[in-house]
Design a protein around this nucleic acid. Structure first.
Lengths: 176, 176
DNA sequence: TATTGTTATACTCTATAACTATA
DNA sequence: TATAGTTATAGAGTATAACAATA
C-alpha cells in the first residue's frame, strides 16, 4: 500500500505516457492506424477468434471493434467467415497479406523501440513490461467494483454494463 | 540492450495500457474531461505559465493546448492575463475555483488508484512510476537530437522536480 | 427474451494550416 | 521576418443507442 504522493506521481506519468503513444502512432502507415494494428496484432498472437473475443482483448466496446475490423477487412488483411456453430457470429482470421503486414509493422516498431531504449538493460525492459502487465491485471480484476464517494461532479450514474472481460485469454503477462 | 521478443511484449503492454487510461477517463466529470484535467494538474504543479510552456509540458501542439485552455477558462477554472513582458503572450493561472476542482479530482483519482492497486507495495508503485518516467525521458531525448541513444540518461525527475522540456511543439517541428 | 454484431450519432483528442497581433 | 496564440478543418478513437439476425 502506497501513500497519496506516490499515486499522484504515478498518475502524472500516466498522462506523460500519452506522448510516447502519440510518437509511436506517428510511425504507423496512414493506411493502418493504431486501431487496425491492434486488431492484426491480437489475431496474430491469439489466432482466429470471434468479434466478441476480440472486443474483450481490445477492452473496448464491440461497436468500436466492429469499425476497426471493417477497416482491415476492406483492405484484405483479415477474412470474416461465418461461424458454423453460431450463425450470428463471424470468425476473424488473418490473411497472408495481413500476416505480411503484421510482420512488417512488428519489425518497424521493434526497431524504433530498440533505438529509443538502447541504453536500457534487458532486465529493465522486462521489468517495465511486467509492471505494466500487472497494472492492467489490477484494473481488470476490480473492474466490476465502484465504491467511489459521490462528488458534486458525479459523471454518469456509472458504467451500467462494463465491457465484461472473461477469464480465458486475458493478456497473460509475460508468459510465452 | 534487450531482444526482439522483449520489445514485442512491451509493445503489447503499451496497447493494453489503453484500457487503463480509458477507465480512468471514465471517472472524470463530464464537464472536465481528461484534457482539461491535464491543464489544471500542470498549472497546479508548476505554477503560472504561458501557453507555449504548457504546450511543452503537455507534449501536444499549441493549437490543442489552446482549445483545452479555452475550455477551462470558460468555466472559470483558470485566468488568462496579458504578459507585461510580451503582449503576444498570456499568463495562465489557476483560480481558487480551479484549485478547488483540482484538489477534488486529485483526491478522487488517488482514491481510485489506491483501490485498484491495493495489493501493490509502495515500492512497486514507485518502481512503475520511475520506469514510466524514464521511458518518457528516453523518447524525449532521442526526439530532440536524432542520435542513436548515446546520450547518458539523466537522473529521474523526482516528485517535486519539474522535468522541463526545451523543444518546441509547434506544427512545423516534425522530424519523424 | 437474450445475444451477436452492425450502423448512426456524438464527443474527445489530436495535427495541419491559415490567420492575427505582436516582436 | 519570426514568434505567440487562435481558429477552422479534418482525422482517429471511443461510447451509447437503436437495430437486424439468430439463439
Amino acid at each position: 500500500m502506497a501513500e497519496q504522493a506516490r499515486y499522484e506521481e504515478l498518475i502524472r506519468q500516466f498522462s506523460a505516457f500519452g506522448a510516447v503513444k502519440r510518437e509511436m502512432g506517428r510511425m504507423m502507415p496512414s493506411e493502418c492506424p493504431s486501431g487496425s494494428a491492434a486488431v492484426l496484432t491480437l489475431l496474430g498472437r491469439y489466432g482466429d477468434m470471434r468479434m466478441s473475443k476480440l472486443s474483450e482483448l481490445l477492452a473496448v466496446d464491440m461497436s468500436v471493434t466492429s469499425r476497426h475490423v471493417a477497416h482491415v477487412a476492406e483492405r484484405g488483411w483479415i477474412e470474416r467467415s461465418p461461424d458454423p456453430a453460431d450463425k450470428r457470429s463471424r470468425i476473424l482470421r488473418l490473411t497472408p497479406a495481413g500476416r505480411s503486414l503484421l510482420d512488417q509493422l512488428s519489425r518497424r516498431t521493434c526497431h524504433m523501440l530498440a533505438e529509443r531504449l538502447s541504453d536500457w538493460s534487458d532486465d529493465e525492459v522486462a521489468q517495465l513490461t511486467r509492471l505494466m502487465a500487472r497494472l492492467r491485471a489490477s484494473f481488470d480484476d476490480t473492474r466490476a467494483h465502484d465504491t467511489h464517494g459521490r462528488e458534486p461532479h458525479r459523471p454518469e450514474p456509472r458504467p451500467p454494463a462494463p465491457p465484461v472481460l472473461e477469464q480465458t485469454t486475458r493478456t497473460p503477462a509475460i508468459t510465452q
